[in-house]
Design a protein around this nucleic acid. Sequence first.
DNA 1: TTGATGTATTCCCATATGGGCATGTAAGGT
DNA 2: ACCTTACATGCCCATATGGGAATACATCAA
Lengths: 117, 117
Amino acid sequence: MARAATTTDIFNAVAEPRRRQILDLLAAGELPVGELTALLGLTQPQVSKHLGVLRAVGAVAARDDGRRRLYRVNGPALKPVHDWVARYEQTWSQRFAALDDVLAEMTGQDGADRDAR
Amino acid sequence: MARAATTTDIFNAVAEPRRRQILDLLAAGELPVGELTALLGLTQPQVSKHLGVLRAVGAVAARDDGRRRLYRVNGPALKPVHDWVARYEQTWSQRFAALDDVLAEMTGQDGADRDAR
DNA sequence: TTGATGTATTCCCATATGGGCATGTAAGGT
DNA sequence: ACCTTACATGCCCATATGGGAATACATCAA
């Protein structure tokens, strides 16, 4: 067992740069495979495969249009990633840092080592 | 070339469930390798390797304490992930959905197909 | 029907990943 | 000095991933 199946886990699906690019392109609206292929400078089979993975994890959905197939992003599939990483946001967020200061002042605690990292 | 080096890309580093678990445990505070090993039920070499990857991408930092080595999370390394996924938040966020409605009303545009997905 | 266009799928290969096990190394204890 | 504890590394293996090329499918055109 080498790794969580790329086709089952959203985190793995999105770990591939090309797949993120695909999502980014689709974020603007529906696109057929051919468009993506041209925009990304990849081969058609390659794009189809990546789309296959994204479809498997529900990150994209497709709609047939004649002999083309239009793909679109299905954002909610990315929620788990967002939720997970959001827990660490306070580490760099100015907003949370400011809140920390306020809390420290209120409780009289010293937060001096917050960024002593 | 099979995939972006797991040791160079934060997205790949975090794609591994165990590594996310490690970060989650460290989120509560510093921990020595032994603790992590016990808490995760993994072998020590396994944990050390995962920590090695996390360290390579800057997701964790270490501090020597006698013969133990205390690891801690280095949140900012996760910012790229957060920033990327945040762009898709509006797809499921109630907050943004409400904003969309307001904007649609203001501009007179019809946003009816927003969730016609 | 025949042919062309747009996608999906299959097969093979090079590569690197994660696991298991053994070993190297450093710090403490006696 | 010697032994034990705490980690890090190295080596080997099974597996799956992504790329490349060829091919199967489906739809539309003539």
